[in-house]
């Protein structure tokens, strides 16, 4: 049987969800027998191929215009999009800054923290992505097919979801597989 193809990417994220993906231990071997990983932030190839992929995984919230671009590109190139982790699904801990004005956040982060050297400025280069006023979840930006919450989602639940999709079934996150923390 031909393997299904998989690409992953990360947005506003701590990378813990990808750690959980790698944390599958020996399950990883079983999953990789059914799933071909084409690109991810932790492989040499970073971007999903233009000709498309079966499954796309996005981790992290959408905080700026670059991340919106990454999210839209993944959506366009994958057949089934998995929003993985609390940040992607709910906005998660990244939404903590939604309580504050964006300029206030930037000023605090780059100028006012105790560890900042005096005289620092907020970087304003046009090459740097623009922060959105509010952090959004992935489903606020693009259509999501499978929601996989968790901070991070347990490795065996990620394996379950990929295995189900590889078998052509819709994964169903029941009580025992769901976690929000």
């Amino acid at each position: 049987m031909a393997k299904i193809t998989l690409c992953t990417d990360w947005l506003d994220v701590c990378s813990g969800c990808h750690m959980s993906l790698l944390d599958m231990d020996e399950l990883l071997v079983a999953v990789l027998e059914k799933v071909q990983l084409l690109s991810s932030p932790i492989t040499d190839l970073k971007h999903p191929p233009e000709e498309g992929v079966d499954i796309g995984i996005l981790t992290g919230a959408v905080s700026n215009d670059h991340q919106e671009h990454v999210a839209r590109r993944m959506r366009e190139r994958c057949r089934i999009l998995i929003s993985m982790g609390d940040c992607a699904v709910f906005g998660g801990i990244c939404t903590m800054r939604n309580f504050f004005d964006t300029e206030e956040v930037l000023r605090y982060s780059y100028v006012e923290t105790d560890s900042t050297a005096p005289g620092q400025q907020v970087p304003r280069s046009p090459e740097i992505a623009k922060l959105f006023p509010k952090v959004k979840s992935v489903r606020d930006i693009v259509k999501v097919d499978v929601h996989l919450p968790g901070c991070p989602p347990p490795a065996h639940v990620i394996a379950y979801v990929l295995t189900e999709l590889a078998a052509g079934r819709e994964p169903k996150l029941t009580e025992d597989l769901l976690t929000y923390d």
């Binding site: 606020d140 929601h147 009580e175 769901l178 929000y180």
Partner: peptide, 13 residues
């Protein structure tokens, strides 16, 4: 939320 299998939130917050 676990029992009723809420895997995402439907509404803007």
């Amino acid at each position: 939320a676990y029992e009723y299998e809420l895997d995402h939130w439907q509404f803007d917050r």
